[in-house]
Design a protein around this nucleic acid. Structure first.
Lengths: 170, 170
DNA sequence: TGGATCGTTCGTGTAGGACCAACTATTTAT
DNA sequence: ATAAATAGTTGGTCCTACACGAACGATCCA
């Protein structure tokens, strides 16, 4: 893990430390704004924000077990069931039993799902324009690319992190 | 599932359109992962993710009315009250009556608040490392900068957008 | 054969946050 | 001067997303 040069014991009383700014809160804030905007647009399509997240993950992953999906989305397996029930009821997704392990369901987008996802993304242009309006088109592409790469990075479980993390490291 | 009024799109039958990918779902996904990681780290500091968002906004804005804060955070004014009550109870924030309009409270970080925010950001290093681990340090800085600029862009209200938006524009 | 694993259902709990009503203090408009 | 609008506050209700637990069928594996 990255161990940068650490804090100096004697900072001025009003330090304004620029180097420790975190993306977390900003991410939180923008995601929230985006979600608020998206809901009204998604409703006519019979989708909710979380559905869209799932569909996106499914498109990127091709086919994936429900466990894998739960791990990727970081939500409880039991809740994945309900999510997929929604999507399957609308024929956007299909569960096929895995041939090599018949306990597993391999989840993948149907053609209708692919199409619906595209419609949704199209409909979200306005929301994105509004929330990311301060960024130039090229910057938005850059942002997308960074977010995509970050999303695909390894996702360790909370347990692992707690185990490995130890003290606060700062 | 959640049956809204349907509206069939008429899209070309074949494509895999790369150009309409949206950052929204990715933002959603990463923000969620970051929030899950953050909570356990923030708890010992007596903070919640939303507190951190508020503190961050306050640091960036210097002093701001509660209405302004509500608009920026895009949460209801009545909920801002509770949020600020939390923070003020911990002496992280102060409300001063505005001299030029004594109805207003100007909210700003206290010194303790600035300090606590820095501590929190410091403690969040691990969470960020985990969620953004796939990005190189320079890329994380870039991401932060993009997010910051996007956050500071004008935030129109939902009402405005609905009024101006009209049809889907796609 | 007896665990362990994947998915499923159901039920409970918690938290964020919207929204409404009613109230006070203050400003602005008539 | 008085009425209307605005900023904040309190208290309440409601909805949604999720976590988490229990119990179950199907399947794999030792």
């Amino acid at each position: 893990m990255f161990r940068g040069p650490r804090k100096l014991g004697h900072m001025s009383a009003v330090p304004t430390d620029e180097s420790e700014r975190r993306s977390g809160p900003l991410l939180q804030h923008l995601a929230r704004r985006m979600r608020l905007r998206s809901e009204s647009v998604l409703t006519p399509l019979g989708l909710r924000p979380r559905h869209l997240v799932a569909l996106t993950v499914l498109r990127d992953s091709g086919g994936i077990s429900q466990q894998g999906l739960a791990a990727t989305l970081q939500i409880d397996g039991t809740n994945v069931v309900g999510l997929l029930n929604d999507l399957e009821a609308d024929d956007l997704v299909e569960r096929r039993r895995s041939p090599e392990d018949r306990r597993r369901h391999v989840v993948s987008l149907t053609e209708a799902g692919t199409k619906r996802l595209r419609e949704a993304e199209c409909a979200l242009a306005g929301a994105e324009e509004d929330v990311l309006g301060a960024l130039a088109p090229g910057e938005r592409d850059l942002l997308y690319e960074l977010l995509r790469r970050a999303s695909q990075g390894r996702s360790s479980s909370c347990a692992e992190v707690v185990a490995e993390g130890g003290p606060d490291a700062c």
